[in-house]
Design a protein around this nucleic acid. Structure first.
Lengths: 194, 194
DNA sequence: TGACGAAACGAACGTTCGTACTATTGTCGG
DNA sequence: CCGACAATAGTACGAACGTTCGTTTCGTCA
């Protein structure tokens, strides 16, 4: 159980990069094998099907997301600072992948294709949305946000900005995306406060 | 030049639906041929390459977008009513495709892949962003929006909501997306007004 | 009606896809 | 150091990919 898990991890590392630029479907087994310097069959043995590979890639992404975004944000003070931290860490995390957030790509690819991949995406995205909603609710409780703020709506607006940032950055590539998104987010925070 | 253009149009019609659900790359020539009841080679003859087919599909989408969103909105009164119309027509237009806005899918697929398709996406998306910015600027001039509003930022926020709506709708499929998005948009309008 | 160009066809090209088998290598505990 | 077993490579498969080819059907006008 030693060596195998290591190579599997290395494969998923490389797969995450490829999936972020090419998508989960274009992430081909032959291509991935060449990228990590293995034979197609040798790599294939680690995952018993392409669908399992796709799922494993998303699970690896989840793990990184928790480690890079969720956990560090939970260490921040409750309320607005934590909301702000979630946003900051999201921006950082997105930049860690050459093709941007792998979830973004995967959701577009699979939101109309039923199966275990779509199910997994739905589940994790719900969790992320719940976490955001909860963070907003706490900010209300703490008195940072106005009492009549709807946490769910706030979470949606938050997510919209995150998605929009991703798209703007990768399409225009003019370096203005981060400033623009920060401005929009500050405005969102403004209207969320008392 | 009669018959050929007709079938070409019919092909692109079907292709638009398929591309919105499957993506421009998964929109396979063989699959499309089967969908329209033609032979692969017969269909292929209309476009001299797959890249040309993809480009033609996007051009067909552009045409529909102008006819369904831009033009009718320009008939509305200048200022906020026109901005509102742009948003309303966007929501309608998006619903006309089984897999949602074909641009959304295409941008995610091609934003990291240089070529004529990406170039075309960049160009049309810039046009759309410019149109939105211009509409916001007019609303400022008319006194509907506050004088210090930044039209470009507003256009970005607008687009973010549109993208977010698309994703929410197709992933969750719980029927709450439109209400949620309208609420967020109303809030955006509120903060844009005096 | 005959002829001619446009449009659609069927078959085949070489390549790559995901997956199934079998063989070879590598890594450890006795 | 060796046997067991995990890990990787090799080979082959049927199907689908984009593309090309030569041929056949269709539409139109002399």
């Amino acid at each position: 159980m030693g060596k195998g898990a290591d190579t599997r991890g290395m494969i998923l590392d490389r797969a995450l990069s490829l999936a972020s630029t090419e998508g989960l479907e274009q992430l081909t087994i032959g291509l991935l094998a060449k990228a990590v310097g293995m034979s197609k069959s040798g790599l294939f043995a680690h995952f018993k099907s392409k669908e399992q590979l796709q799922l494993s890639v998303l699970e690896a992404a989840s793990e990184r997301f928790v480690r890079g975004v969720i956990s560090p944000s939970l260490k921040e003070p409750r309320g607005e600072p934590r909301v702000q931290a979630l946003f900051d860490h999201w921006l950082e995390w997105e930049a860690a992948f050459p093709g941007g957030c792998p979830y973004q790509t995967a959701i577009i690819e699979f939101d109309d294709r039923p199966g275990v991949v779509r199910d997994y995406l739905l589940e994790t995205q719900r969790d992320w949305q719940d976490a955001l909603t909860q963070a907003a609710r706490i900010a209300v409780d703490e008195g940072h946000f106005r009492a009549d703020l709807e946490p769910k709506t706030f979470a949606f607006q938050f997510t919209c900005l995150a998605i929009g940032y991703y798209q703007h950055k990768h399409l225009y590539r003019d370096g203005t995306s981060k400033t623009l998104t920060r401005k929009a987010f500050d405005q969102l925070l403004d209207s969320a406060r008392a």
